[in-house]
Design a protein around this nucleic acid. Structure first.
Length: 418
RNA sequence: GUGGGUGUAGCUCAGUUGGUUAGAGCACCUGGUUGUGGCCCAGGAGGCCGUGGGUUCAAUCCCCAUCACUCACCCCA
């Protein structure tokens, strides 16, 4: 038997309606905020990610599905969505149409990791990017979208974590200060932390090892290194969030895994998830457009994990699947079945969700099927009714049944508000 | 890449201290007289007990390997 690959899975009919619902909610929500959808290809040149996301990140260094196309071009299944969106933004010069470009997406992405709860190799994210503005209003709007969308879905136990990692100059200064603080303790650090000490010291802040956390408690504070401008920006973001009554906690140890972030970073977690508890992560990336060859364009955005959202929604109880069918036709005998097919065809053209038996089963079986289908109304047609141009109409909720003239069927259905 | 757990029916799981026809619940199918669902009752279909090897008179059970799934680490959505 050929099975789906590790870390990939099928969304089966029992599950797919939840995805459809979520997608519909997303589209509605984004139109309220004035964001437009963008869709980019499933694969890109590898260079886009190594340059955009950062050579040293885990994503680029060990998680990408990369191959040589036609023996010469290095391609990669997208492991991340911001870089492709920015690539498209530059390529089509979207910035020329308006000072601010507000985009959203929902898409599949690919990372070669060991799967676990809330982590697959092919998974889905939705997210937004607001390109073209350096102002805190944009940070606040993007954070508000992430937070309020989850609230609107009914997810509880949300925790919004906020931080600022400053911009260029102060980051360099902070890195030095952090290294200076840590260097006398370098023997106490774990192997990975020692490696990061050389490659990317900020990531040491991410550690989950107890004694390292303790050690870092006395480390210099990144907020103390922010330039005056960075500081103003950050406090305005907070002020705007306060004004919108969006609750957050400051987490100065939160450093996002991708290289392109500047200033504001944030993350939303939920205790409904397992160990992979981040529902959403994002922040400002003022240098990325430039890095990818566009003109200097400040921007801010986030991405959220769709599978994780669905897990969180599971925890608060499943919603009912919307009714599958309204009308079920039960036919007795060849003539009636044939007449029924024409009748159902007609009803379907009028938009009624209607079904009939495709395997020529007994009446009892057809009645059972009608019940299972969730139909409210059963139409029963046999030789007797056929002769008299009549049909039986049965309400499955109260078991009331009556014989009506076929010509009056539409009126009856209309009255039932189906 | 590393570690733990688990592989028996479509699903959730029993079970055999190694012994001949491997079980339950749910789901599915067919019936319970003439053309009527849900509840109930009866019957039925559906398993190389993950795969390969070893021990044994005998393995679904014990041993080894392997694969898959799963959770966790790393990291992230």
């Amino acid at each position: 038997m050929i099975r789906s690959l590790k870390g990939t899975y099928d969304i089966l009919p029992d599950e797919s309606w939840r995805w459809q619902t979520l997608e519909a909610q997303l589209h509605d929500f984004m139109s309220i905020y004035g964001y437009k959808e963008i869709r980019t290809p499933a694969f890109e040149k590898t260079e886009l990610f190594s340059r955009g996301v950062g050579e040293e990140t885990d994503i680029v260094s060990k998680e990408m599905y990369t191959w040589l196309d036609g023996g010469k071009t290095n391609l990669t299944l997208k492991p991340e969505l911001t870089a492709p969106v920015v690539r498209s933004y530059i390529q089509h010069n979207l910035g020329a149409l308006s000072p601010v470009t507000k985009l959203y997406y929902m898409d599949a992405l690919f990372r070669r990791e060991r799967p676990q709860k809330g982590r697959q190799r092919q998974f889905h994210q939705f997210g937004v990017e607001a390109l073209g503005t350096p102002f805190p209003e944009a940070d606040a709007e993007v954070i508000a979208i992430a937070y309020e969308f989850m609230i609107s879905l009914g997810i509880t136990n949300l925790k919004l974590k906020l931080n600022s990692i400053g911009s260029g100059q102060c980051r360099t200064a902070y890195k030095d200060a952090l290294k200076e603080y840590l260097s006398p303790h370098i023997q106490e650090l774990s192997e990975t932390s020692r490696l990061r000490f050389e490659t990317n010291p900020l990531r040491i802040l991410d550690t989950k090892i107890e004694h390292e956390i303790e050690l870092l408690g006395k480390a210099p504070d990144i907020l103390g290194f922010l330039t005056a401008d960075d500081e103003t920006h950050f406090s305005e973001v907070r002020e705007l969030l306060d004004g919108m009554k969006i609750p957050y906690v400051l987490d100065k140890r939160m450093v996002r895994g991708l290289d392109y972030y500047t200033r504001t970073t944030f993350e939303i977690t939920s205790s409904a998830l397992g160990s992979q508890d981040a529902l959403c992560g994002g922040g400002r990336y003022d240098k990325l457009v430039e890095t990818l060859g566009g003109k200097s364009t400040p921007a801010v955005g986030f991405a959220a994990g769709v599978e994780r959202l669905l897990i969180a929604l599971d925890e608060i109880g499943k919603t009912e699947e919307p009714s599958k069918t309204d009308i079920y036709f039960v036919g007795l005998g060849d003539q009636a079945r044939k007449a029924g097919i024409k009748l159902v065809h007609d009803l379907r053209k009028q938009g009624y969700k209607s079904n009939y038996d495709l395997v020529r089963r007994s009446m009892k079986a057809q009645m059972r099927e009608s019940n299972k289908s969730g139909a409210r109304i059963v139409l029963i047609l046999g030789d007797q009714e056929l002769e008299n141009n009549q049909i039986q109409i049965k309400d499955l909720e109260n078991s009331q049944q009556m014989t009506i003239n076929l010509d009056e069927l539409k009126n009856h259905l209309y009255k039932l508000e189906l």
